[in-house]
């Protein structure tokens, strides 16, 4: 899925920092005391605790440890609602298992799947969670990487994500697929540098040029910066997205999409469903 000679080029100087800043926006808001906490990392050997600290603040916490079956007591004692208890040999076992199975010439997604499988096998053996989780998340992730992801990779297309602000292009990212391989990561800087402050009216021409340059049909999503910030803050609420779409602050092109009337009806339907209590807007709970 990812060729070893993947082309990562013309990222510009501003696109990636701006996109990171955009997506970090939500993280930078003031956090409550509870959000600033944990989880608690406990490293042990048998019944001996070797290291116990808040993962987020690296602050050491004193605990009385009497085995991994008593994690609930530690949670009560320390006030941490989440605990990760790891045997000192856990990472070594994961790396050794993966090291024995991995192949250097395999696709990166398959290599990652090997690591996830090895991790999955350690859950409940050398890695324990409180509250308990099952092996399935990591096994399922590994299965998805191996079996499902390769099947949903587009055949030939260049996907563009463009953020605009006040009639100018603010940032972009483009991902190209050819023969079901992610072979390209680039930006609109490949055709016009962002430092030249291109206007949104040039966007169609820029999309055409980048599509021609890599000989791939374009699929694009263009969003106004304020709308993107709002969507990120609301964890990509579909209702909010449809509202922006109808206002023209979010545009899509090249996808098989319903007509504007279709989108409006869909929005209305989702809005009604949301009103009835179905939790589309999880962040506002």
């Amino acid at each position: 899925m990812i060729p070893p000679d993947i082309l990562i080029s013309d990222l510009g100087a501003l696109n990636y920092p701006r996109l990171c800043e955009l997506f970090a926006g939500k993280r930078n808001r003031p956090q409550s005391e509870d959000e600033n906490k944990g989880p608690l990392l406990l490293i042990f050997r048998g019944l001996k605790p070797l290291y116990c600290a808040d993962i987020k603040n690296f602050e050491k916490i004193k605990i009385s440890f009497s085995g991994i079956s008593r994690l609930e007591e530690i949670a009560k004692e320390t006030g941490y609602s989440r605990i990760v208890a790891v045997s000192e040999s856990a990472l070594e076992r994961i790396f050794d298992k993966a090291g024995g199975r991995i192949r250097h010439d395999e696709d990166l997604t398959k290599q990652l799947a090997v690591f996830l499988e090895a991790l999955s096998q350690e859950i409940g053996t050398t890695i324990f969670f409180y509250p308990k989780i099952k092996k399935s998340p990591f096994a399922a992730m590994s299965f998805s990487l191996r079996k499902i992801l390769p099947k949903i990779v587009p055949k030939d297309a260049i996907f563009l994500f463009v953020v605009t602000e006040n009639d100018h292009i603010w940032a972009s990212i483009a991902i190209g697929f050819k023969d079901r391989q992610l072979f390209l990561i680039t930006t609109l800087d490949a055709v016009v540098p962002l430092e030249d402050n291109p206007r949104t009216e040039e966007l169609d021409e820029m999309i055409r040029k980048i599509s021609e340059r890599f000989d791939l049909p374009p699929r694009y999503l263009v969003v106004e910066k304020s709308a993107a910030e709002s969507l990120i803050a609301r964890k990509f609420s579909p209702v909010q997205a449809l509202i922006f779409y109808n206002r023209g602050e979010l545009k899509v092109g090249g996808f098989l999409a319903p007509s504007k009337i279709g989108w409006t009806l869909l929005t209305l339907g989702i809005w009604l469903l949301a009103k009835t209590g179905i939790p589309f807007k999880r962040t506002e709970q």
Binding site: I2, P3, P4, I6, F95, D96, K97, A98, G99, G100, I102, H104, D105, L108, Q111, F115
Partner: peptide, 13 residues
């Protein structure tokens, strides 16, 4: 076990 370096776009021993 062989010692792999987790690197992109390919891990290698």
């Amino acid at each position: 076990a062989p010692v792999y370096l987790p690197a992109v776009p390919r891990m290698f021993p």
